[in-house]
Write a protein that binds this DNA or RNA. Structure first.
Lengths: 334, 334
DNA sequence: CTGAAAGCGCTTACAG
DNA sequence: CTGAAAGCGCTTACAG
């Protein structure tokens, strides 16, 4: 395999100096149109490929954004990643996505690798625990970083935080179920003692206390499989439940499947509300009520905040909470 | 923000030359243990961050793998990405993931960006059409690239191809439905004239012809929403269908939801087989029969093939087909 | 508008 | 085992 052509080769072919080629590469207005055309032609002829490593060495303005997600198996996060990537692309920034899979060691490794490659900025949905080394590295490297959904580092001046107002929506969902006549209402799913679980559960707890109703939490992994298991427990015994507020839509869909399996259709006899607002809420049957988060808008706002920081030095507000809206569908109205 | 320390700073602090620091960075056995320790300590004290751009400039051995996926919304692809990333990480390679979302322009842009950053190798699940510029750029850059699932470039000597044997499994699924007594069997989902659609449909067609049964295809987007729509059509009219082979599991799950909505439970009266083998096949109810692809193993095999190429110069076989196994569950057995 | 020169932070032979 | 020197492919002032 032959050596890749450099700007010197291009300069020679186009009969200009390499500075001029560099200027063309940066779309500088200083270069005459005819010259630019000649350089472009030479690049095409030679099959020139820009070497960003070399460029970064001189001016570390990479135009590269990192996106670290903790659960790529959840449609909520893939929707977030897709929308954010698109928003960055519109401003000429490339996005690299990595999945930590809730594993702090993987998270530390991918972030370290991203730092070495020289990121312009980073958006991270951190693992619930063990994120300290990752944020220490980010702090050392001075990479503008936004934390979303889970506040792993309390220093939101350095690492601005954005999430949804899950507390309010959880209370609203719970009151909705109570209004439908349910009294025995469980909170299902979410890993025990995880910050996001506590946050999403807090609204449920407040609403139940306000109504003088007993609370019960069934913590578990935030996926369908756990939801199915949980359904068995919800149906068990004499004190069978009438409704559930679920940690997320995946859990709710799993609970729904568990009930279906037992020949019971969620709706009038068992009412269910999820959280996130993934597409499958309305793609399944019965359709799932949910605490709907506009993830597309959230991703665009997050991207805009990071870009404003990078491009204009406008530091994002330390803490932002997007509104969540309750969408009541067949699963909670019978 | 102060200047990031370089190996020269580290060398000064540790009282050695910068060559020695470089050797330590590369874990070279040439450096005495005590010296290495001193250098490590100096790096920790200074908060040194390795600058990979500078390193790449001298030796373009980046240890970075690109992964370009055409539909991050499909669990099949997120499973693939997660498993591949893990396999690469075990060999010390970092993975960056990008989502082309079936958009050739986005695909070209993310691949161009990856090439500029200097990839060691690339795995791409190409868009169905418009991938020519992307492969032309890859060819020019000389990046070892594996195509998976869709053969966008016929030159498999340059771009080895790996996929599943969908033709065989489609025929098997169809014969299974016929054996259950179904005669009016449709093929549902998959974008019309797309290569993957034709491939997955070919087994269905062959089996139906062999059995002397009439064929009917209902092409459409490979997601749940289309499956739901399709269900309406399948139930319509007098010639209502008895079974369907679906393009993938998402479509099948959508069809299932569509039937459920009409108060009809798939199983004995309507039999359904999906394709891919995503987790939701067994997380829902009734459980979905599927043409199961071992995506984890496929991802590991693909990673191993690329790593063998990069590390030992062993060029992968031009074309590889992984076996697909039929898993018959409640959705097709009643 | 264009060119000559210095330098970004590393790695790589080459001496010692 | 360790050090001095050259050079990777760009960008950035600085002249002209």
């Amino acid at each position: 395999m032959t050596r890749r052509p450099t700007i010197i080769d291009v300069a020679k072919a186009a009969g200009v100096s390499k500075s001029t080629v560099s200027l063309v590469l940066q779309a500088s207005p200083l270069v005459r149109a005819a010259t630019r055309e000649a350089v472009r032609q030479a690049m095409a002829d030679l099959g020139y490929v820009y070497n960003r490593s070399a460029a970064n060495l001189r001016s570390p303005n990479v135009g590269l954004i990192g996106l670290v997600i903790n659960d790529l198996g959840n449609p909520f996060f893939t929707d977030f990643a897709t929308a954010a990537q698109q928003a960055f692309a519109e401003q000429g920034f490339a996005t690299v996505i990595a999945n930590s899979d809730e594993n702090p060691a993987i998270q530390a490794r991918v972030v370290a690798s991203m730092i070495e490659h020289g990121l312009s900025g980073l958006v991270i949905a951190p693992t619930d625990s063990g994120a300290e080394p990752t944020f220490a590295a980010l702090r050392r490297a001075g990479i503008p970083t936004l934390q979303v959904l889970h506040k792993a580092d309390p220093d939101t001046e350095t690492f601005p935080f954005a999430s949804f107002d899950y507390a309010t929506s959880g209370a609203e969902a719970t009151r909705h179920l109570i209004a439908q006549g349910a009294h025995k209402i469980a909170f299902v799913g979410g890993l025990k003692d995880h910050a996001i679980t506590n946050e999403r559960m807090s609204g449920y707890a407040a609403a139940m206390i306000a109504a003088g109703l007993p609370r019960l939490a069934l913590p578990g992994r935030p996926n369908r499989a756990f939801g199915r298991e949980a359904a068995t427990m919800l149906m068990m015994g004499k004190r069978s439940f009438e409704a559930a507020v679920c940690f997320n839509d995946l859990v709710a869909l799993g609970v729904m499947a568990g009930y279906a399996r037992a020949g019971r259709k969620p709706g009038s006899e068992f009412r269910l509300v999820g959280c996130d607002g993934i597409a499958e809420c309305s793609d399944g049957w019965p359709q799932l009520s949910t605490q709907h988060c506009d993830v597309g808008q959230f991703a665009r706002d997050t991207a805009a905040a990071l870009l404003g920081w990078l491009q204009h030095g406008i530091r994002p507000v330390p803490e932002r909470r997007a509104a969540v809206s309750l969408i009541a569908r067949a699963s909670s109205r019978g």
